[in-house]
Amino acid sequence: MTSKEKSTRAIVTVLGTDKVGIIAGVTDVLASCRVNILDIRQSIMQEFFTMIMVVDFSTSQMDFATVGKKLDEKAEEMGLQIKIQHEDVFRFMHRI
């Protein structure tokens, strides 16, 4: 883990009440940051919107904190909860 090149993939999670334009809004932010989306999974449970995206940072010039801030702004604007975390968090916590 420490010796090889660090992965540039992250997980974006979006939680909130369903409404028009959530996917468009979030993907628009990611596109403007030149962050590539590798996978999207989305579901709605009783009007509760959940979206999990796997994204790749290698094409982006921006760092985590900057993209995170832009997503925070979007979250604020749309009344959602958006979080971006390096994929290692999930890999490490749940896999041996």
């Binding site: 579901s43 959940t50 975390q85 994929e87 968090v89 916590m93 749940h94």
Partner: peptide, 12 residues
């Protein structure tokens, strides 16, 4: 690759 439940558990 990633399990949705696990991701939501971590965030929670």
């Amino acid at each position: 690759m990633f399990d949705k439940e696990e991701i939501l558990e971590t965030i929670n």
